[in-house]
Design a protein around this nucleic acid. Structure first.
Length: 357
DNA sequence: AATTCCTTCAACCGCGAAGAA
DNA sequence: GTTCTTCGCGGTTGAAGGAAT
């Protein structure tokens, strides 16, 4: 198969394809000497006729000294499957929890081994639910319905806001305000309220109640994993995303849903949902903050979504005067996502069962 | 032994995000 | 505020090698 050439190699005559031992040696020597702060200038320094991108990939996926090669252990397989159930195909995030493995290696291992293993066991590798699970299809449909309703309401709400803003500020020219249509088409609409999570919660509640009857095998419902695996409670199919410059009056009063953002995260206080024996999320527990976590947590968006969810969940239950068992405990802003994820990987919540290969 | 089919995984590509100019 | 450059990510490809016919 003939691939189209990338931007650089055709013009500059750069080499592509498998690396030779000589090229590897040049790359390693150069990185040892100069580091790799600028991949674009590295090939020239190293005397390589490769593009910086190719050098970076070769180093990260193959030459880096802290890479563990060889077969994946059962423990690693389980970790990958569990994280995939939570995160989806976010290989780079998954790779952070397997420090000696690269995202590319994990991705390949998933596609060649783990995915097939799940299918053989009758588990949908995308949803991590049993294949041909009629109940799951219903839940998916409920999820999608809730999402569409929430998005429609958000657009409607924003339409009102736009109108109010335009009427209120005669100084702002119409051209500086993007049209609603354009906003929708460009997939930029603000968060308006009530938050989408409340729609989601209805679905979620149903999903829990439908499974909680099975006391002998409490399960973490896929809806939960699905929610975790989405950014800010959007479903994987969501077409909306949101800018940060939403007018403050469009945000939810009496809810800290919107106050939760990446910059608000700290490792001081923690909140984690806890399942009771019936698999119902019933409270919070504190988790000791992790030690020195060098890696950034900022891009773990789903963890932000998770943190954003629980205060709103609690409020939803309180507003609906639901039983204390279904409350979700105290809200807090600082969340130690590393600890939560570690807990999940290491078997928490105790009463929930992830699909394991 | 020759051929075809299948599996694996290193490497490439395009895209979006972030930062610099 | 806009344009350009660089980086990082996820999806995909295709060469190589093994298995099946």
């Amino acid at each position: 198969m003939v691939k189209s050439s990338s931007c650089c190699e055709e013009k500059l005559g750069l080499k592509k394809g498998p690396w030779t031992p000589e090229e590897d040696q040049k790359l390693v020597s150069s990185i040892q000497l100069h580091g790799h702060r600028s991949w674009s200038s590295l090939p020239a320094k190293a005397g390589l006729r490769r593009c910086g991108k190719s050098c970076r990939l070769r180093w990260i996926n193959y030459l880096r000294p802290d890479i563990k090669r060889g077969n994946f252990s059962l423990r690693e397989d389980q970790t990958i499957v569990q994280l995939h159930a939570l995160l989806g195909n976010r290989w780079s995030v998954i790779a952070r929890h397997l420090p000696q493995r690269t995202d590319n290696e994990i991705k390949n291992h998933w596609n060649t081994h783990l995915k097939k293993g799940l299918i053989r066991k009758g588990i949908n590798p995308t949803t991590h639910k049993p294949l041909n699970d009629a109940a799951n299809l219903i839940h998916m449909a409920q999820w999608e319905t809730a999402r569409l309703e929430a998005e429609a309401r958000q657009v409607k709400e924003y339409s009102k806001l736009q109108l109010q803003n335009q009427l209120g500020s005669s100084s702002s020219s119409s051209s500086s305000q993007p049209s609603l249509t354009r906003l929708v088409l460009n997939k930029i609409a603000p968060r308006s309220l009530p938050p989408a999570c409340l729609d989601v919660l209805k679905v979620w509640q149903n999903s829990w109640s439908s499974t909680s009857a099975d006391h002998s095998t409490p399960k973490m419902h896929s809806m939960y994993a699905m929610m975790l695996a989405t950014d800010d409670l959007e479903s994987p199919a969501s077409t909306l995303s949101f800018p940060d410059n939403v007018p403050s009056n469009s945000k939810c009063p009496n809810s800290n849903f919107w106050l939760m953002n990446k910059s608000s995260l700290s490792s001081t206080t923690t909140i984690t949902p806890v399942s009771n024996d019936n698999g119902i999320m019933e409270g919070a527990r504190n988790v000791e903050p992790c030690g020195n976590k060098e890696q950034s947590r900022g891009d773990d968006d789903i963890m932000v979504a998770m943190g954003a969810l629980f205060p709103s969940v609690r409020q939803y239950y309180e507003a609906n005067e639901m039983s204390p068992q279904q409350n979700l405990g105290e809200s807090s802003i600082g969340v130690d996502w590393e600890a939560i994820l570690d807990d999940l990987v290491n078997g928490w919540p105790q009463s929930t069962a992830f699909p394991v290969v």
